[in-house]
Design a protein around this nucleic acid. Structure first.
Lengths: 316, 316
DNA sequence: TGGACTGTGAAGGTTTTGCTTCACACCTGT
DNA sequence: ACAGGTGTGAAGCAAAACCTTCACAGTCCA
């Protein structure tokens, strides 16, 4: 698979015709056909079939076209990024869903004091975080406890509280045991109940398995809890205001404790900005940013490309 | 720029040493060095500098390494995706932030009746949607009115209402004119106030420019409005329950009307699944899914890779 | 100050890529 | 049936990609 082959194929897929693609590229029809033939052979998929007066992509061809466009877009982006902003380093930070809200404020504060660093935040399943760090897909991980080969620095102790809607029949009524908590549906963020989280450990310890419902975001799961659809675990300080306003009610159950770490690769492998963020996370300034209310930013500060795949297939 | 070159460079960046990269690849040191030299020349950046007993990446080198890992990961993913699930077509759907919540339910309903199609949802700035569709970065766009060369099908009329917190001094008090609305801060989702939205048109019509604050998600902006930080525009039916519960209050102001479309490329260019989704969007079933309360899904249905870039630089 | 080590670059050879031309198979519409 | 179109594959050739070897310039350490 070469970029050249992908370029040819994308054009064929776009224009729906080998001839037109060849014309556009200024080369012969046969050259294009052969480039695609290379892909076809390597991937063992027809990619497209002749259909009447043109071609029609196979499902595999469609998938390849989709990814190929992304790949070519990224190469373009890479070229551009390297050329521009030569003095600014990119710092790739990954977090689990729960840390994500807090991480925004933390990175803002960090970026404000480190103008030569551009943080880039990606949300991933907690279980993947260590692997992504090891594969150099990211420079710093926030949240997960450090795995082997990694160097972690604890920066915030937090409490998870179980919350339900205001009018829930259990609201504030009495002290609830583990078994009772598991009788409500548990409402979670997009990755479901992740096994590395305090609430998952809690379930394992008590050998319980409540119904789990996933929502496209942590905020949506909380809204669903507020609407009375079940129970959600939230970081204490982040829902304090909503509890005060009475939109949510904390259940009388023992809160779960957790500890967030700033993790980098061990030893020499970590970059200087990565170390700097790790150090910064432990400062009072950072703590203040994380604990503070979510504040709006002037426009043009976020450039998110949120990408959600509705995923069919056997669980997992 | 070839994939081979990127592979070499990524390994050098990871291992921090040309020699080790060469060893790992089973080729000579010089071969690796030359591969990188190709990139170096093309991108006009040193990529790394010799530093003591090894190398240190330049900022540009760091950026390239980051993107290169993504690119190589995508090629891997492409290979795998084409091999697996030969019978399932991927359908790339793009939406603006506001449609995003509703689109999840719609795609779920669509996927349930079209087992051979796997929808993939991406959130993009409204202004880019038409361009992305034309560039074949997506198969269907939901929300934006159809541009030229596209084929749009209106499927839902909605109302935007201006909401504030429960205890806001303006809550339910009197009828508010445009000028008064603009005196509050407007709280928006991640892309800020997008010019193609009804509320932006409203502002242009009355030549107003309120303070705008952006939040990392639409839900976060609404939460901020509930907390009294300003005004947010929300799709009427999606906040009905929160209004009933009194968490939010609708201002007495004329609501703004909008119309969502399902847009594909015109004529033959649209794929069969794209057309199918477009047709589906206009059915009562789809309407019901969109208007219904956000419901939780069984775990393992979402596979989001949310990716947020904190972006520095001159506005825009 | 050597010696060991690291990365760079030129020279040279082999393999692969990428292109064109040509022959051919297939579909379409008259 | 036939011409006009489309995509495929073999043959051949020029260009490049890719590798190795070798010479060389820095850096580190005894």
């Amino acid at each position: 698979m070469t970029l050249h082959q992908l370029e040819c194929f994308v054009l064929v897929a776009r224009l729906g015709s080998v001839r037109q693609a060849a014309e556009r590229l200024g080369i012969s029809v046969s050259a294009v056909s052969q480039a695609v033939a290379g892909l076809r052979h390597e991937l063992d998929d027809a990619l497209y079939v002749r259909s009447g007066n043109g071609i029609a992509l196979t499902p595999g061809g469609g998938r390849l076209a989709a990814r190929a466009v992304e790949i070519l877009g990224l190469t373009q982006q890479a070229r551009q990024e390297v050329r521009e902003q030569r003095s600014v380093s990119v710092l790739r930070v990954i977090v689990g869903v729960r840390v994500a809200e807090a991480a925004g404020a933390l990175l803002e504060a960090f970026a404000a004091r480190n103008p030569h660093v551009e943080p880039e935040l990606t949300v991933e399943p907690v279980a993947l975080v260590a692997e992504l760090l090891r594969d150099r897909r990211a420079d710093v991980a926030l949240g997960a406890a450090p795995g082997e080969g990694c160097d972690g620095q604890a920066f915030l102790r937090y409490q998870l509280v179980a919350v339900v809607g205001r009018d829930h029949r259990w609201a504030g009524e009495r002290t609830l045991g583990p078994g009772q908590l598991a009788r409500l549906p548990w409402l979670t963020g997009p990755f479901g109940l992740e096994s590395a989280t305090p609430e998952a450990r809690f379930l394992r310890r008590h050998d319980l398995s409540p119904t789990v419902l996933t929502y496209p975001s942590q905020a949506a799961a909380l809204d669903a809890a507020a609407a009375g659809h079940g129970l959600a675990w939230a970081v204490g300080h982040s829902v304090r205001r909503r509890l005060e306003r009475g939109e949510l009610t904390a259940l009388r159950a023992p809160p779960l404790d957790g500890l967030w770490h700033a993790v980098t690769l061990a030893g020499e492998s970590a970059s200087a900005p990565a170390r700097a963020l790790q150090r910064f996370a432990t400062t009072p300034l950072a703590t203040q940013a994380v604990l503070g209310q979510a504040r709006g930013l002037p426009p043009g500060r976020y450039r998110p490309a949120v990408h959600v795949t509705l995923w069919r297939g056997a669980g997992a």
